[in-house]
Design a protein around this nucleic acid. Structure first.
Lengths: 230, 230
DNA sequence: GATGATTTGTACGTATGTATA
DNA sequence: ATATACATACGTACAAATCAT
């Protein structure tokens, strides 16, 4: 329990301490290092980072706004604990949002952005062949983010990113079953083709199904385990 | 400039001071009392409410998370100033979200909730006849909220409410042109009918068009005035 | 149920960074 | 460009509420 000899908090240039805490704690929650339900003690976290409670408090409030943390008045902050039902609702919502992104992207993406989307997608092939699951996870995020951006609506993009993050916090690597990777690449191919052809309804439909497929895997996992994964 | 003789902040039971500040400032921003771009000085606001800067700070951060306030590091907090383009993006996004709500509501609303929706809608008739614009504004919110809830997905509901609030902050009463009220009631009628008949695609389409109609009025207004309204 | 310990909520002072002269 | 003024960012102390005993 005698951890953190030096203050392990590197500040990006121009970054405030509270922003850095948001960054670090958020990553730890999304990655599962801080499991749902874990108490987030202000003083303890502050000591860990070599900070006072003030910037930690602000960071916890900000994380609460994104849904990664739950703060109960006079009771403290906890890594958000999401019931299976709520999590399935989030997936359902995310499927709609991603579907919207794909549809708008099909209508709005132009020259350069379209080429980049193709390049990103094709880069995934190699990762599938290599069975590089970590690499594919990053690739997957890149592809989806390219589509969010291609939708040409910042409000939509931000909302989709936010929901994706809050969902990511509650599905561990377990979800990324081996078979899913090659299936995912195939589904991506269909979606990218629809976008490049400007077929918005098809892009929306395929993307929604793509996300709901992940949800089905998640649901099966959740029902079996009866607990929220790390 | 010698305002606020008594501390004008009433705390709801169990409410923290910072939560109360969020409530009051948020209402003032949405209602237009605090116009976009207005500087929100921590010390000044704290003095106004008879509080120290700490709860005010936390309130400003929370409002920033909802998009009503913009905080720039070391520079302070301001009522969010949204460009015309960004505002139109928000409207576009809101139209999609409300459309989703209507579609899900058509699939999921059951007995009691359906009856309540009908009742709410019919209550609007009287307000239109009376040309009660303030009353209709409240009624309009009630109807839309009933549909959000009827969608049966909390994530979707919260996101829709959030976008609606942030849009509301930038359209003043001017938008609610006299003719719009009766038109709105007619459009509501079509939407409610589609929901009660369980026709999800039609409910989605009608609701999206309903919101985009408001957007067109807003756009015309914005283009004319060349400024963000109060 | 009462009391003490612990943690959060708030107040206030200092340091740091930004903007202006 | 340097200095000055000012608001925020952070630290510290105290009050209030919750939890444990």
């Amino acid at each position: 329990m005698t951890d953190a000899p030096p203050p392990p908090l590197r500040l990006a240039p121009g970054e405030t301490r509270s922003a850095a805490v948001v960054r670090v704690l958020g990553a730890q929650i999304v990655s599962g290092q801080l499991p749902p339900g874990r108490k987030l003690d202000e003083a303890q976290i502050g000591a860990h980072f070599g900070l006072s409670r003030t910037p930690v408090r602000e960071a916890l409030r900000e994380l609460a706004a994104t849904g990664l943390v739950e703060v109960r008045p006079h009771r403290g902050a906890f890594v958000a604990e999401v019931s299976t039902d709520k999590m399935l609702e989030k997936f359902e919502f995310m499927a709609e949002l991603e579907g919207l992104c794909a549809g708008y992207a099909a209508r709005r993406m132009q020259g350069t952005a379209r080429d980049q989307l193709s390049e990103i997608h094709e880069a995934g092939m190699m990762l599938v062949e290599r069975r590089d699951r970590a690499g594919y996870r990053d690739h997957n995020i890149r592809l989806h983010e390219a589509i969010y951006t291609g939708a040409g609506n910042d409000s939509l993009r931000e909302a989709t990113q936010s929901v994706r993050r809050s969902v990511a916090a509650f599905r561990a690597a377990q979800f990324d079953l081996k078979e899913r990777i090659s299936n995912s690449q195939v589904e991506h191919g269909l979606i990218v083709t629809a976008i490049l052809q400007g077929d918005a309804p098809e892009a929306t439909r395929l993307m929604r199904r793509h996300i709901l497929t992940v949800m089905d895997a998640a649901e099966a996992y959740l029902r079996e385990k009866r607990v929220i994964p790390i």
